[in-house]
Design a protein around this nucleic acid. Sequence first.
DNA 1: GCAAGGTC
Length: 891
Amino acid sequence: MQRPIKVLNVAEKNSIAKQVSAALSNNAARNQRSCSTYNPLFFFPYSINGQPCDMVFTSVAGHLMELDFPENWRKWKACSPVDLYGAPVLKNVPQDKKQVERNLQEQARQCQWLVLWLDCDREGENIAFEVIDVCRRANPRLLIKRAKFSALVRRELERSVQTLGLPDENASRAVDARQEIDLRIGASFTRFQTMLLQDKFDWRPGGDEEEQRKVISYGPCQFPTLGLIVQRQWEIRAHVAEPFWYIHVTYRAPEGQQCTFHWRRGHLFDHAVATVLYEMCVEAPLATITRVDARQTLKHPPLPLATLSLQKEAITHLRMPGERMMKVAEELYQEGFISYPRTETDCFDPAYDLKALVRDHVQDARWGQHAQRIDSGEMWSNPRSGGHDDKAHPPIHPTRWTAGQPNWHQEKARLYEFIVRSFLASCSKPAVGFQTNIEARIDAELFTTTGLMVMERNWMEVFPWARWGGNDNLPPFAVDQTFMPTELLLKEGVTHPPPKLSERDLIAAMERHGIGTDATVADHIQKQLDRGYAAKDAAALFSPSPLGEALIAGYHKMGLSNLWQPDLRGIIEHNISEVARGRRTKEAVLEEAVQHFRGDYRAAALKSGVMVEEVARFFDLRAGGQAQAAGAPPSEELGPCPSCTLPLGLHKPEEGTPYVACAGAPICRKAVYFPRATTHADVSPQSCAHCPGNMRKVAFRFRRAALPYGYDAEMAACVLCDQRFQDLCEACGTNRPPEHSRAPGRGAGQRGGRAGRRVPAAGRAAPQRGPRGRGGRGGAAAAEGRGAPRSRRRGRDSDSDSDDAGWAVGPRARTMSRGPGRGQPHQRARGARYGAQAAGRYAAGRGRRQHANGGSLISATGHVMGNGAAHGACFKCGQPGHWSSVCPNQD
DNA sequence: GCAAGGTC
């Protein structure tokens, strides 16, 4: 008989230690308190590959160590912030984790093996090495093993413990790199901003000294988050309302049923064209039904809840901010009513006994009946899978039934109810409806209407927040039937700016850009409010504070927008992922990052006057602050353009001559554009095809919703005649269905000079306009007069600094507007950001004169063709697989 | 007085 060895097992948190111990010991583990309050010990015998073991299971509570500068570098005035890029950093166990450390060391001394059961992600791997470090100091002879598990179910845990491996050093080193980058840039820019601005301005007139002192923090998650809020504010401000027209048709049947028809063209921005089409309808108003399509349709229940989806739902349905929701969920979890609330998993393990969980709720007065129907199988349907699994936690679900606890506050009861109902809904059958789509023709115009009858509500019965319904009083139509419309009107509408960001939108945007993790997204949002960078109004919509906007505008004017653009975090993540994959060393990535951000820091410090000037637009200088501010250089004097040596800022040539484009650098990356256009690109002599004027660039971001397929967010329009260069469908004048661009004969490129009007792909030089530039009459106005910020998500081109291409904002910056592999761009432009129905409200893009621009191409289908590139076909050569801006078939 | 990421 072999003598048992002692094995120390460490999990990331107590709940995992408890579950794994229970699973491996058949609920026979002996529980004992340790010197660490939240990390008890569990003892049980076990056998690993035939080797008898005395298992001791305990836990840490997240990271055991913290990265910081040595004491003498922590004093703010001890060094220049730029020195923090070269300062040493230390990893230490902070005071509040000393108990955890002691517990580990006490146990490690008595054990031969150390088995690491930390979460199977990068951070978990890093914590594993922290645990190793601490335990090895107490017992250098420890044998180190790593348990990898993909679910906390017995079979999987048993498999895991019999196939122990080694911890992944690369993953851990990636986290070390992330921590160091975050610390260095966070600390240096926080000190920079704070020491530059803190005492210079009267932040709260009349406030005492304590109120005046505020930390103006910078963080690689904080600032991209703030950037999203500010960017939206600028987009709202830049919106130009434009009227549009549409034909409105209603019909009321003699039996009383009624419906409203929607024009297939949506709406037109050309009043003349809309009027002509309308008059044609009025002259032959009898409508003919051309299509009746009726079918059963399903509405699926919600996916199992992960942290971010729960946050988004709680905000929408319970009006509970994400950060608050996490606190309440934490309480529910601590009391054992719900599962672990920080999870990315949105699919249940098939081995999970969901019916048992449901059965727990049949006694409830509110949802018991529905639970009963699920349990009996009548309502049961396997929960859908969202396709995400963090391999450590199940989706958020109730773990214990309660009718409510006397000490519960209202929010807690509501959140519990939401989680229970959501869980029951996810285990229920989909709702069934009967949808009828009708198409009618009046003259040559097509109109559609839809009716929906909900036949079975199913999951919606237990989930009162769900809405599904439509016109259930549709007149009975048959193909070829004719009717006289009750109303046939030409109505006018107007485009609206995008709404302010809601917390839900903000979370979604952060998720999309990889800013923060599921556990920290809400914290980063809360930090915007705590730091006074943004405010939330009564409708829970975010807008930047003057300080928040000034900070972003300041970096923007310095040409350092990469410090706040949403890609920042994604780029850091991308680089450290290379370390985790073993493709690059931690040292190389760190060195590159330090160089890059030190460069940005120096640039920011050199132009600090720009920041002071920006803040001075919103806040009064304090007594004594004047002198410093007066010495700051005005923002127009930013030094020479790195590409052409012309002074940055507005370069004004002789009267009557066109503005000079910077040869070889059509987009001057270091220049700024807000609030005054000052890039050389803005004053480049792009000439109008219709008049001898120069074109101006206009912000089109929020007009994209109505733009035809594949247009860039930025487009050019002539200052003098305001022609915008777009190819639009003259026949329908609206967003074209996919078949338009598939038709032969496509080729907007056949229109001369097209390439010159398009914004070049990031990282490529823009095609220079040739001798078409005629005169500069519009140039001055173009450059000076357009204060509206352009929505340029380009940042710095990837060739901006040859030594740090990996840290520059490259083509990723464009993925929101389009990008291979991210879905159909047109669909996303319309739907992804605001929802398909809402898209029309923001639609503007097509100038009213769009149809006057002649020279359009009529395809075989009678439609004017535009850029097919959005469908994967190049608009220049018509071939799929590449963008027109990188067309290999044409120059 | 700085970050972000774990967790309580």
